[in-house]
Design a protein around this nucleic acid. Sequence first.
DNA 1: GTCTATACATAGATAGAC
DNA 2: GTCTATCTATGTATAGAC
Lengths: 205, 205
Amino acid sequence: MGIGSNLLDAMIELRKQPRQDRSRAKVDGILAAAADLCSGRGLDALTTNAVAARAGVSIGSLYQYFPGKAALLAALIRAERANLLEAVERIVSSDAAQSLTHLVDELIEATVAHYLARPSLSRTLNLARSQLPPDPEAAEFSTRITVLIAARLNQLKISRPETTAQDVLAILRGMIDAASEAHEADRAALTDRTRRAVLGYLQAA
Amino acid sequence: MGIGSNLLDAMIELRKQPRQDRSRAKVDGILAAAADLCSGRGLDALTTNAVAARAGVSIGSLYQYFPGKAALLAALIRAERANLLEAVERIVSSDAAQSLTHLVDELIEATVAHYLARPSLSRTLNLARSQLPPDPEAAEFSTRITVLIAARLNQLKISRPETTAQDVLAILRGMIDAASEAHEADRAALTDRTRRAVLGYLQAA
DNA sequence: GTCTATACATAGATAGAC
DNA sequence: GTCTATCTATGTATAGAC
């Protein structure tokens, strides 16, 4: 997974690794602007011109750091994935994950928090991803998160841990997504219902 | 919900109701072409030029029937919704829906068939919808399908039938979507797992 | 390193001939 | 009714001045 590992990377990787603080801040500003636009008015609003304008830099500067629009999107997606993966890593390596109900509770809390932190950004990136060509990074992310959870499920004697982990994630995504689309406000109620759904599924298995 | 009921309709409704067979066939051809393009290469491929070309009509003819790209998309979405709604109507008004497990089985079968009939079309339209401005038709569709299912759940003494119906649909969508994205081939296995998830959820409630 | 100006491509939409 | 030709707008990306 090193930089330059495939041709697509040319379209996607940063042009330069910003080592200085000023550059780092500029890159962050550009990404923040991109996230805002995605979140606010969807994928169509993510134009290089609009991002540059909102970030307060010129289009030329943007292209110094990002080789194109795809690179912006890739960076956003990558950040989002890293977030969720970190959260799951913390959970599975914590003591709270010793019992099934605790594990589930923690996963739900993290997942709900993740997807509802910036719901529309999350959904927009999601659908962007589904329009992109099959991406090895996406596959690796799925695998890693599944494996982390599956390992715990396995210790807890849940059968077919990989499939089960995938299903649990799918159920959570489906329910949280629906709630987010419906602008459902009551997060506690959502957490409670997802809990019933996941535990119900695990017990029925 | 009559034609012309809101301003958006101007962008979305057919320009003329094709009464003659020839016109009807042309409209169908255009929609089929649009569906193919959506299905094949996603939303970006749905351009008015491309649709016209693939349908074998000129761009001018296309604009005679559809006032724009949005109208094409709206028509596709409408057709997709009508399909699913019909299927659910058939189920809830059939005898098989008398027991909970039968109801669930029928719903799963219909939902899986619906979303996997043309998976990538289904997903593309889905995300198109989520990018569109809030649409009264979408809301009405959600309400109707929820109400249909909730009525049955209510007869079966399930508590909070509306919320439960929404959750069941969300669970199904989530799992089917994940399977479809992962290009999971085994439909029987998917059906089985969704069944466990849904029944597990209903029993935990 | 950063900006302005601009080239280039493509999409949406219409006008007008037939 | 249908087509071709074309206009307009917009987005990506680069060149070149500073």
